[in-house]
Amino acid sequence: MSRFFSLIFILFFSCSTKEYPNIIIAEIPKNQMEFQKMIIGQLTGEISINTEKNDSISINSRWSAAEKTLSREYLKQIIEKIGLEPETHNYSIPNTNFGVDLLIEPLNGNNLYTTLPSTSESNEYVIMGAHYDTGGKNVPGAIDNGSGIALILSAIRKMAELKFRSKNVMVVFFDQEEEGVSAGSIAFADYLNKTDLKIHSVHSFDLIGWDSDNNKEIELELPSKDIERMYKKHAALLNIPIYTTNTNSSDHYSFIKAGINAVGISQAYGKGDNSGKKDSPEDRYHLVNFEYLESATKLAYEVIKDIIDD
C-alpha cells in the first residue's frame, strides 16, 4: 500500500520542462508574394528555420502542443520583424458538457495577438484573425490555415506603412479551431467582451489558398449588412467575384455568438472549389495558389483600409 501511495506522489509532483530553440529570422522579403511564400513555406516544413545555435529546424505540423509552441515562437519573431509587439492570450474553457468535464481536463490553449495602433487616439479596434493549428497529426496545413496567416501578416505589414489610421488593427492567431469547438476564438471573444475595447468588426480568414478555376472568387460567411456591402464594393473595384453563405463552422461564428460584428472570409469552399486535401498530410506548400492569395490579400487590405480610413 505504501508503495502505491509513493507512486502516486511521484506522478503527481514530477514535472518536466522542455526548452525550445530560439528562432532567428534574418530578413523578411519586401515583395508580398515572396513574404507569403516564406511564411507558408516555413510554417509547413517546406522551408527550414534557423536557430540561435546555428542549426535549422522545421515546423512540419501545428497539431501537438509542442508543435504549436514552436509555431507561436516563429510567428512572434515575424510579428517583431514587422515592428509590432506579440502578446499571448492563455485560456482555459470547459468542454461541451459537464459529463465530459468530469472525465477530462478543460480545453487549454494559447492565442497569439498583436496590435497596430491607430495614428490618432482611438479605443476602436478592427480585428483580423486566423487559426494557426492544423487538423490532424502530421498535417502541414498550408491552405488550412497557413494561407490565412500569410494573408493577415502581409496585410498588417502594409497597413503599418499607412500615414493615417483612425482605428487600431488587432491581429489574432487562434488556437484549437480544429478541435471542433473553435476554442481559441470562443475564449478570445469572451476576453474581448470583458474589456472596454470597442470592436468595430472581426474578419476571420480560413482556407484562402485554393482556386482551381482561377476566377479569384471569395466566399463571405455570415457577414453583417455593412460588412457585406463593404466587401462587395471593393470586390467590384478589384474585379473579384464574391458571394455570401451562412457557413458557421469557423472562428467568425464564435464572435457572432458573443454579439460581436464578425465575418468569415474563405476561398469558394461552399461552391466546392477546394483541394480535397484539408486535414490531410497532403495539404502542403505546393497546393497553395499564391496568385489567388495575393488577390484575396488585396481585397482584405482594401476593406480594412477603408474601415480605418473612416
Binding site: L7, I8, W63, A65, I104, E105, G135, G180
Partner: peptide, 19 residues
C-alpha cells in the same frame, strides 16, 4: 483530428486512469 482528445486519452492520462 483532435489533439485535446488524444492528449486526454493517452500517455500520462492512462496512468492516471489506472491509478
Amino acid at each position: 483530428n483532435s489533439f485535446h482528445m488524444t492528449h486526454q486519452f493517452s500517455g500520462y492520462s492512462i496512468i492516471l486512469s489506472i491509478l
